[in-house]
């Protein structure tokens, strides 16, 4: 057993050495990347067309989430009225509501990212951009609350007010055992995936700092996030029976 473990450790270290050497050579040879101009041009383009970026992201995220919301509601009601055993296809369609929630959540993050990254001293219409940003948040919130209220109306077991801070705790506690298990399993799997993604982000931000002098802030934030993930898991593991 230990032989294969040692072999895997040795292989991973050797692979990391090779990748690191290639990256280091790349940095030594191409420190002055001419293509950085391309990134600067893209950035300037986005600064000058911020409003269009907002409308594009709204079309890409808010429109599908709204369509999924109405389709999901229809399928959910049909599933409730059907007295036969649950049809897998019906169940998948009713899951459109979950997908709509996810898309809205992603849009919310992108909305904040757009505002934070694209807001610039030379922005032509700062008020319009602020209004679009706030409208995006409002739309997302209204649709998310509507989805939760709709599900709660049709399933009286599920509790929690989506406008309250304790919503997540109340909602999960009101779920049945199978639903809770599904949530906990998914949460654990996503934690493991997040650890890998965060490590990747740390490496990328270090690389970008060396190559493009983007600053150490992104590195610090990524590292703090990773530490928070590790500590929070240990903390809750010790508290949970």
């Amino acid at each position: 057993m230990f032989k294969s473990t040692k072999f895997r450790i040795a292989t991973k270290y050797a692979l990391s050495l090779v990748v690191g050497t290639i990256l280091a050579l790349f940095l030594l040879i191409g420190n002055d990347i001419e293509n950085m101009e391309l990134f600067i041009n893209i950035q300037n383009f986005l600064f000058n067309h911020t409003i269009y970026v907002y409308f594009l992201s709204a079309a890409l995220f808010l429109l599908p989430s709204t369509i999924l919301y109405f389709a999901g509601k229809k399928a959910y009601l049909k599933m409730l009225l059907d007295e036969d055993d649950l049809d897998i296809d019906q169940k998948k369609k009713a899951g459109y509501l979950d997908t709509s929630m996810t898309v809205l959540g992603v849009f919310n993050v992108i909305n904040f990212m757009q505002y934070g990254v694209l807001y610039h001293k030379t922005t032509e219409n700062p008020t319009t951009i602020l209004i679009l940003f706030m409208l995006g948040i409002l739309f997302t919130a209204v649709l998310q609350v509507s989805i939760v209220k709709f599900i709660q109306k049709n399933d009286q077991r599920l509790k929690g007010d989506p406008t309250k801070v304790t919503f997540n705790k109340d909602f999960i506690q009101s779920m049945d055992e199978a639903e809770q298990l599904k949530v906990f399993k998914s949460a654990y799997k996503s934690l493991q995936l997040l650890k890998t993604i965060t490590l990747f982000l740390i490496v990328i931000s270090i690389f970008m700092n060396i190559v493009a002098e983007t600053g150490g802030f992104a590195i610090v934030i990524s590292c703090i996030f990773m530490i928070a993930q590790l500590l929070s898991f240990t903390y809750y593991e010790k508290r949970t029976i």
Partner: peptide, 10 residues
């Protein structure tokens, strides 16, 4: 006191 989906899963 469980969801219909849970009964289906069982």
């Amino acid at each position: 006191g469980v969801s219909r989906q849970t009964i289906s899963l069982i």
